[in-house]
């Protein structure tokens, strides 16, 4: 398991453990001594099926859930265990993008209010607030930006809302974005566009991503490195191409076998449409 280190680590999780206890139920271990790091401008995909503890790990990284054991480090400084006031200041370097874009915005606020709520926390000397918001909107492909300013989140489509999530994250100019299944809520046709947007931002703004997904083909297309999570532990990790081309762990093999590559998917679609056409011709 050789990993290429690209730059300085932005986010590090060191032997992080978390289990949930509920009266009358056996404790559930969501994370068991997980080690994970994301370097500058690097994308790490955390892959695993639902219930494997990926989302809990994302919340631990964001400081929304406190780990039972282990440390979370941001630029080498331990942030887990910081008092609330200090955590509040440092956590803004990490911005989340969530799966369910319909729950990601206060339904009573307009796009202007939602974005300026973020932008005001990260002052920039350039331009008025309105100009800044328009630039943010256009950066994520919501053009022309003016048209979106007065709208409410429920007036946008799922894909547009997910772009708005990304715009809100970008308003903070974060070194790292933690994206928890950001494409699962979107249509298949929208997924490609969102993925391209995220790749674009990685290149232009040098954003690092901790990208959580159950879809191994997305991990393959987008990530530099992957970590495969199974029942709260990371069972396999390494460069994306290597791990996915030559999986070592049983679970990774099953994941890779279960997913289609882009070429396979295209072939399957072709075969189906071919069948339908011949079916139409025969009748």
């Amino acid at each position: 398991m050789v990993e290429t280190v690209i730059g300085k680590p932005v986010l590090e999780l060191c032997k992080v453990s978390k289990s949930f206890h509920r009266r009358g139920f056996p404790p559930v271990t969501a994370a068991r001594e997980v080690d994970l790091h994301v370097c500058e401008a690097e994308t790490v995909a955390l892959v695993g099926e639902s219930g494997s503890g990926k989302s809990t790990l994302a919340k631990i990284a964001l400081g929304l859930v406190r780990p039972d054991a282990g440390e979370v480090k941001l630029f080498g400084k331990t942030i887990s265990g910081l008092p609330m006031g200090q955590l509040r200041e440092v956590r803004t370097a990490m911005q989340p993008v969530f799966q369910d874009s319909s729950a990601a915005f206060n339904p009573r606020r307009t796009v202007t209010q939602l974005l300026s709520q973020a932008a005001i926390r990260h002052p920039s000397p350039i331009g008025t607030m309105r100009e800044r918001l328009i630039i943010l909107l256009e950066q994520v492909g919501l053009r022309p930006g003016e048209d979106y300013l007065g709208r409410f989140p429920h007036e946008l489509s799922g894909g547009q809302r997910q772009r708005l999530s990304i715009a809100r994250a970008l308003a903070m100019d974060p070194p790292i974005i933690i994206a928890d299944e950001p494409l699962s809520g979107a249509d298949v046709s929208i997924r490609g566009q969102l993925l391209n947007l995220m790749i674009d931002l990685r290149e232009k703004r040098k954003v690092a991503y901790l990208f959580i997904t159950h879809d191994i083909s997305i991990a393959k297309a987008f990530a530099h490195r992957v970590a495969v999570m199974y029942k709260g532990s990371i069972v396999e990790r390494g460069n994306a191409d290597e791990v996915l081309a030559n999986p070592q762990h049983e679970y990774t093999k099953r994941l890779v076998e279960g997913s289609l590559t882009v070429e396979q998917a295209e072939k399957a679609v072709e075969a189906i449409s071919h069948k339908m056409e011949s079916g139409v011709a025969a009748s």
Binding site: R88, A104, F105, S165
Partner: peptide, 13 residues
């Protein structure tokens, strides 16, 4: 709800 967590990540009290 997730929007509460999103706002918390913006550093609000």
């Amino acid at each position: 709800l997730e929007f509460v967590e999103a706002v918390r990540c913006l550093g609000y009290k």
